[in-house]
Amino acid sequence: MSMIVFELWHYQLGPGVDDEEVDWEEVNGLRIGLFSTRAMAEAALEARRDKEGFVDWPDGWRIWDCELDEAGFEDGFPGWEGPAPGPAARPKLH
């Protein structure tokens, strides 16, 4: 039996953005958390909506659902030309 989990992200995106046109590799974003229900992800969003930084980008919230224990990229990591990049920088949280 598969389980769906919900990942809450906040991006620096303005109003009226079409998710299909966003270059997600170029947008600044923070993963806020991973939740077992959409309601819990929405509650976490509401608790942060008016906080510093988040309030400046009110349209930047996204809740992505994904299946737990499902791996992707079976054929390898697509799209790389040249050497692989180093590990991603982790954001500093205050």
Results as ranks from 00 to 15, higher is better:
residue 40 M to H: 13
residue 30 L to A: 11
residue 83 P to T: 05
residue 35 F to R: 00
residue 58 P to I: 02
residue 47 A to I: 05
residue 61 W to N: 05
residue 74 E to K: 12
residue 23 D to P: 05
residue 59 D to I: 02
residue 37 T to L: 04
residue 16 G to M: 08
residue 44 A to T: 08
residue 68 L to D: 10
residue 26 E to T: 14
residue 37 T to Y: 00
residue 91 P to L: 10
residue 19 D to Y: 15
residue 12 Q to V: 12
residue 12 Q to G: 05
residue 81 E to G: 07
residue 41 A to F: 00
residue 3 M to Q: 15
residue 68 L to T: 07
residue 79 G to W: 06
residue 1 M to P: 14
residue 7 E to G: 04
residue 40 M to E: 14
residue 48 R to N: 15
residue 13 L to N: 08
residue 14 G to Q: 08
residue 49 R to Q: 13
residue 47 A to N: 12
residue 65 D to G: 02
residue 50 D to S: 15
residue 73 F to Y: 14
residue 9 W to E: 08
residue 92 K to C: 09
residue 2 S to A: 13
residue 78 P to Y: 10
residue 21 E to D: 15
residue 60 G to Y: 01
residue 50 D to V: 06
residue 15 P to N: 12
residue 43 A to H: 09
residue 25 E to T: 15
residue 8 L to M: 03
residue 76 G to L: 08
residue 6 F to D: 01
residue 32 I to P: 04
residue 56 D to N: 10
residue 76 G to D: 10
residue 32 I to F: 04
residue 36 S to Q: 10
residue 68 L to I: 09
residue 24 W to H: 15
residue 79 G to K: 12
residue 16 G to E: 07
residue 90 R to E: 13
residue 85 P to M: 03
residue 13 L to S: 03
residue 16 G to H: 12
residue 88 A to F: 06
residue 11 Y to A: 15
residue 30 L to F: 09
residue 8 L to S: 00
residue 50 D to T: 13
residue 85 P to Q: 08
residue 86 G to N: 04
residue 13 L to Y: 03
residue 6 F to T: 00
residue 35 F to M: 01
residue 54 F to W: 11
residue 19 D to T: 14
residue 90 R to W: 10
residue 29 G to I: 06
residue 6 F to N: 00
residue 4 I to H: 03
residue 84 A to D: 09
residue 68 L to R: 14
residue 94 H to F: 05
residue 30 L to S: 08
residue 24 W to Y: 13
residue 75 D to G: 06
residue 31 R to Q: 09
residue 48 R to W: 07
residue 60 G to L: 01
residue 43 A to G: 07
residue 40 M to S: 15
residue 48 R to V: 05
residue 6 F to M: 03
residue 22 V to I: 14
residue 71 A to M: 13
residue 68 L to Y: 12
residue 67 E to P: 04
residue 94 H to C: 05
residue 92 K to N: 07
residue 3 M to N: 11
residue 3 M to A: 14
residue 60 G to K: 02
residue 57 W to D: 04
residue 41 A to H: 00
residue 33 G to E: 02
residue 38 R to L: 07
residue 9 W to Q: 11
residue 36 S to T: 06
residue 90 R to Y: 06
residue 23 D to E: 13
residue 43 A to K: 14
residue 42 E to R: 01
residue 11 Y to R: 09
residue 61 W to P: 00
residue 92 K to R: 11
residue 62 R to T: 06
residue 81 E to I: 10
residue 47 A to W: 01
residue 62 R to F: 04
residue 72 G to M: 04
residue 87 P to Y: 04
residue 31 R to A: 07
residue 79 G to V: 06
residue 7 E to W: 04
residue 46 E to T: 07
residue 45 L to T: 02
residue 5 V to P: 01
residue 62 R to L: 03
residue 47 A to F: 04
residue 5 V to R: 02
residue 10 H to T: 07
residue 6 F to C: 01
residue 22 V to R: 02
residue 4 I to N: 01
residue 34 L to W: 02
residue 75 D to P: 04
residue 38 R to H: 03
residue 93 L to G: 04
residue 11 Y to S: 11
residue 29 G to H: 10
residue 85 P to Y: 05
residue 94 H to T: 10
residue 31 R to E: 11
residue 26 E to C: 14
